[in-house]
Amino acid sequence: MKHFLLAASLIVSAPAAMACETVTIGDLTVEHAWSKATIGAGRPGVFYVGITNAGSADDALIGIATPAAGMPMLHETVVQDGIASMPHAMSIPVPAGQSVQLSPGGYHGMLMGLTTALKEGDSFPVTLIFEKAGEVTMNVDVLSLRAEGPDCADAGQ
């Protein structure tokens, strides 16, 4: 019975734990990558992640690539004078010694031309392309449409 409960708790906690993959490239640590379920494949998906630059040189996220979408782009939600718009972000600065969050209401990856609808519990790879550090690929977990962020024990956000 004890073993059964242990196994059951592992199965239940597994999806949440997956959202907590951390990858490093050079001085950059990339973690808490997540996305939201979409309704069909006709509307764009979204991509959020946290990046920390522990080095002494500035870097920048200049692009993303994924087999899940034909046209992934970086965008920024800007609310100015009471109007929300979503300009294309050519690059997202990751200054030396600082952390940058792609999170709801700010910078985000917009995944256009989804190859298939994103379903809660799915995951897909995204390659982040940095100006100096180069490329790194990680798994992105698809959370519910109403999720506000990954439920990581070490999320600290």
Binding site: V46, H75, T77, P104, G105, L145, R146
Partner: peptide, 17 residues
Amino acid sequence: FTSCPDVCPTTLSEVAQ
């Protein structure tokens, strides 16, 4: 608008809550 990936889902999620 429903093709809005960031702002609209956030607000509609709050309304749902």
